[in-house]
Simulated scan of single mutants.
Amino acid sequence: MTTTSPSPVRPPGKPMFAGRSTLAETLTIRTFLVVPFLVLLAAVPLMWGWGVSWLDLTMAATLYVVSCLGITVGYHRYFTHAAFKARRPLRIALAIAGGLAMQGPVTIWVADHRRHHAFADREGDPHSPWLFGTSPVAVARGFWHAHMGWLLERDKTNIERFAPDLAADRDIRAVDRLFPLWAAVSLLSPALLGGLITMSWWGVLTGFLWAGLARMAFQHHVTWSVNSICHMIGDRPFASRDRSANFWPLAILSMGESWHNTHHADPTSARHGVLRGQIDISARTIWLFEKLGWVWNVRWPTPQRLAKLARQH
């Protein structure tokens, strides 16, 4: 992956970019952002109750869980924050599973997220909702920007600065190059399975619409809600240098990512839901991997660490 060299002199707080996306890249990104969402809006009122089957919902749920954990456990807690160490087969599997969520290759995703933490809710943060002010219009503009507007822009995060470890990893470079394949598998495998199991073109169509496009759109908006909602409303039990918040209604759908204040207070922790009653499916998955011997050196939170963070609040 080619990027521009970092500038030796940079004003404090200014982001460093790798350049601008090509027109083709921009059009592709916008297509995959907008089209599935439009399909979701159209499919629910038109086909719910008669145009969706239990097979469609089962395939959608399965792909949702696998790809969502690929993002939360793989892209986020492992590749971005090194919350644990993993054996090579699992490392590759997590990168592929994250690719099924169609949120971009792992190297680009990680670079964007590391930049988010470097400049959280300040100039340079790629998706803060607080970059335009606090007036009602500014807040509305900020919500749109944080939720998905930033993805429509053509500036790219500098890989050499924010993800040099992944750019130098041969396995990850190979997974990144094959990202179009993971995207195709994610979108087309439900159509293929739906057609083969039902032996009908209708099964192909509904599998593609519900377990392919609609599932992908729904998953995108859950992830983007962590960027937007979880930096605007919710509880803040721990000290952090930004406006990240814990938003419980998203806890299950986001696999524990919506305990966002906790995460920003202690970014390398393998568990985000650290308080009583906070469900964190991703942390439980990491725990299972640890029991199986697939991961080690897991950075679990300790009572002493949590007490220190709480006292600083």
Score class of each variant (00 low, 15 high):
Pro180Cys: 14
Pro180Thr: 10
Pro180Arg: 11
Leu181Gln: 08
Leu181Arg: 07
Leu181Asp: 08
Trp182Val: 08
Trp182Thr: 15
Ala183Gly: 13
Ala183His: 08
Ala183Cys: 14
Ala184Val: 14
Ala184Ile: 10
Ala184Gly: 14
Val185Cys: 00
Val185Gln: 01
Ser186Gln: 06
Ser186Pro: 00
Ser186Ala: 14
Leu188Phe: 12
Ser189Phe: 04
Ser189Gly: 06
Ser189Leu: 14
Ala191Gly: 09
Ala191Tyr: 01
Leu193Pro: 13
Leu193Trp: 14
Leu193Lys: 10
Leu193Thr: 11
Leu193Cys: 11
Gly194Ala: 02
Gly194Thr: 04
Gly194Trp: 01
Gly194Lys: 05
Gly195Cys: 04
Gly195Arg: 01
Gly195Met: 05
Gly195Ile: 04
Gly195Leu: 02
Gly195Tyr: 00
Gly195Lys: 05
Gly195Ser: 04
Gly195Trp: 02
Leu196Asn: 11
Thr198Ser: 13
Thr198Gly: 01
Met199Glu: 06
Ser200Gln: 10
Ser200Tyr: 13
Ser200Phe: 12
Trp201Gln: 09
Trp201Thr: 14
Trp201Leu: 15
Gly203Met: 07
Gly203Cys: 06
Gly203Ala: 11
Val204Asp: 13
Leu205Val: 15
Leu205His: 02
Leu205Ile: 09
Thr206Ile: 09
Thr206Asp: 05
Thr206Glu: 10
Thr206Pro: 07
Thr206Gly: 04
Thr206Met: 01
Gly207Tyr: 11
Gly207Thr: 12
Gly207Gln: 12
Phe208Met: 05
Phe208Gly: 12
Phe208Trp: 15
Leu209Trp: 11
Leu209Asp: 11
Leu209Gly: 06
Leu209Asn: 09
Leu209Arg: 02
Leu209Ile: 15
Trp210Asn: 09
Trp210Arg: 10
Trp210Ile: 13
Trp210Met: 06
Trp210Cys: 10
Ala211Phe: 03
Ala211Trp: 02
Gly212Asp: 06
Gly212Ile: 12
Gly212Glu: 08
Leu213Gly: 09
Leu213Ala: 15
Leu213Arg: 09
Ala214Gly: 09
Ala214Ile: 10
Ala214Asp: 09
Arg215Ile: 01
Arg215His: 01
Met216Phe: 08
Met216Thr: 14
Met216Ile: 14
Met216His: 03
Met216Lys: 06
Met216Arg: 07
Met216Ala: 03
Met216Tyr: 08
Ala217Thr: 14
Ala217Trp: 11
Phe218Gln: 09
Phe218Val: 12
Phe218Asn: 07
Gln219Leu: 13
Gln219Asn: 13
His220Ile: 12
His220Arg: 08
His220Cys: 09
His221Ala: 01
His221Asn: 03
His221Pro: 00
His221Leu: 01
His221Tyr: 04
Val222Gly: 00
Val222His: 04
Val222Asp: 02
Thr223Ser: 15
Thr223Gly: 07
Thr223Asn: 11
